[in-house]
Amino acid sequence: MVTFTPEQTAFAQAVTDFCQRETGTREQRDKWTNNGEENHSQELYKKMADLGWAGIIVPEEFGGAGAGNVELCIFLEEAIRNQAPIGGIGPTLITAAAYEKFANDDLKREVLEGVVAGDALSISMSEPEAGSDVGALTCRAEKVEGGWVINGQKTWCSNAHFAKSILLIARTDRSGGKHEGLTQFHIPADTPGLQISQIDTLGGREVNDLYFTDCKVPDSAVVGQVGNGWKQLMAGLNTERLILAAMQLGLAQRSFDDTLAFITERKQFGRPIGTFQALRHRMADHATEIACTRELVYSVAKAADANPDKLMPREASMVKLKATETSKAMTIDGMQMMGGYGYAKEFDAERLMRGAIISTVFGGTNEIQRDVIGKTYGL
């Protein structure tokens, strides 16, 4: 089973204690989320930043904790398990890692110090005709004197409505292959020529359309090398998929905990429904799957810490696939075991289910993850 150092165990307990104080009741969570309409509270996130948690993996030279992937996964698992409404942390830390690797010194310091202070970030890849096939994107950035002019549309962009800045992937050259000629740009959210428009979803306000109309940015907005955006994206897969996996592990565990509490207390035919074999066996299976998922998450986190520059496409895809499928199965089954109560908004089961199902889509669909895993075996 997964074991932690005494310091890691104390850290996990500190995160749990904070969340139980701030988000331990439904009334508290409704206060932070506008009655469930938002999945992220910047106010609560700032409080976590004051404790040093927003910059947990940011290097110490920029004011962060400089912790590893194991500590990051501990934080995310415990925060999401305790239902802290900080859905924006995933895109923020994924984006921050890209700035750390590729931005120039001045931009890196500006952005990472902001992250430590609680700024949210966003990354924009998908377009109406380029989702899983990121290489097919057409949003273009054309070189002009002193900078670049951007035109086009992006979609499904998480965090953009409250982010301090957006890391945009745009096409700067059409002469090569579809994975060539892509460039990353730093776009402050208040840049003239950028319009951010909400997309209504089952999860409330989470994602947005972005419209760029003659949006001009300086040369200094380029993050990394012009035309090297695709390779830069691939360099961040370990961190991205670990973040998503740890969050879904926490969500699966919360669903299990809530379901267990319900079926222990709920009585039918004169006894708790959890004592019936049909439910008891289902919960045993879910407990086993969650335990297996936790082992995988932390083994990949430890491997990433031991080899920070090594790309692990197979393991990164496996951990995202396993964690999201586990959370989806647990939340759907948990809602069904709760019967009508699982469907009612009075309980958290239906919200947890929505959060789990969409996780199989974002960050690279699970079909794409399976494809990546298969290719690593030469298939």
Rank of each mutant, 00 (worst) to 15 (best):
Ala316Leu: 06
His286Met: 13
Ala235Leu: 05
Gly204Pro: 05
Val300Ile: 06
Cys292Arg: 15
Glu180Trp: 04
Ala261Asn: 03
Ala284Cys: 02
Phe262Gln: 08
Gln268Ser: 15
Gly181Pro: 06
Val300Tyr: 05
Ala189Asn: 02
Phe212Arg: 07
Met283Asn: 08
Ala235Ile: 09
Ala245Pro: 06
Pro313Met: 01
Ile187Trp: 05
Gly203Ser: 13
Leu279Pro: 01
Val207Met: 13
Pro188His: 09
Ala304Trp: 00
Gly270Ser: 00
Lys216Cys: 15
Val223Pro: 08
Met234Tyr: 10
Asn228Lys: 01
Lys231Leu: 07
Gln248Cys: 11
Arg241Tyr: 06
Thr183Gly: 02
Leu202Trp: 14
Ala261Ile: 01
Lys302Thr: 12
Asp209Leu: 12
Thr275Ile: 09
Gly274Ile: 02
Ala245Glu: 05
Phe262Arg: 02
Phe185Gly: 00
Gln232Asn: 07
Phe185Lys: 05
Ile273Gly: 04
Val207Leu: 06
Asp200Thr: 09
Leu260Phe: 01
Leu260Ser: 15
Lys267Met: 12
Asn238Met: 03
Gln198Trp: 13
Ala221Asp: 06
Ser255Trp: 11
Arg205Pro: 01
Ala278Cys: 09
Pro218Met: 05
Ala303Gln: 02
Val297Tyr: 03
Lys216Pro: 12
Pro313Cys: 06
Trp230Leu: 03
Gly203Trp: 10
Cys292Ile: 13
Gly193Tyr: 08
Arg282Pro: 02
Arg266Cys: 14
Arg314His: 12
Lys267His: 12
Asp285His: 12
Thr275Phe: 11
Cys215Glu: 07
Phe269Arg: 08
Val222Ser: 02
Gln277Leu: 15
Leu321Tyr: 12
Glu289Thr: 13
Asp258Ala: 04
Gln268Val: 15
Ser317Met: 00
Thr288Lys: 13
Glu289Ile: 14
Arg282Glu: 05
Ala306Ile: 02
Gly227Thr: 04
Val223Trp: 00
Glu240Thr: 15
Ala246Phe: 01
Asp257Lys: 11
Lys322Met: 11
Ser317Lys: 08
Lys267Asn: 03
Ile273Arg: 04
His186Phe: 11
Phe269Val: 14
Lys320Thr: 02
Gly224Pro: 03
Asp190Gln: 15
Asp285Glu: 14
Gln268Met: 14
Ala252Gln: 11
Asp214Ile: 07
Arg205Ile: 14
Arg254Ser: 07
Asp219Asn: 06
His186Cys: 03
Met283Trp: 04
Lys310Trp: 14
Gly203Met: 10
Gln184Lys: 04
Leu182Arg: 02
Lys320Trp: 03
His179Gln: 10
Thr183Tyr: 00
Gln253Arg: 09
His286Tyr: 15
Pro272Val: 04
Gly193Leu: 10
Arg271Lys: 10
Ala291Ser: 08
Arg314Met: 09
Ala301Ile: 01
Pro192Ser: 14
Gly203Phe: 09
Leu244His: 12
Gly270Arg: 08
Lys320Phe: 00
Asp285Pro: 07
Gln232Tyr: 09
Val223Gly: 09
Asp257Glu: 07
Glu315Gly: 08
Gln225His: 01
Asp190Gly: 13
Lys178Ser: 05
Val297Pro: 05
Gln225Ser: 05
Arg241Met: 04
Met234Thr: 14
Lys178Val: 08
Cys292Tyr: 11
Ala291Pro: 12
Phe262Tyr: 03
Asp257Trp: 00
Leu202Lys: 11
Ser220Phe: 11
Leu244Val: 07
Val207His: 03
Arg205Gln: 10
Leu251Gly: 08
Lys322Gly: 02
Arg266Lys: 15
Phe212Tyr: 14
Trp230Ser: 00
Lys231Ile: 02
Leu279Arg: 07
Leu311Thr: 11
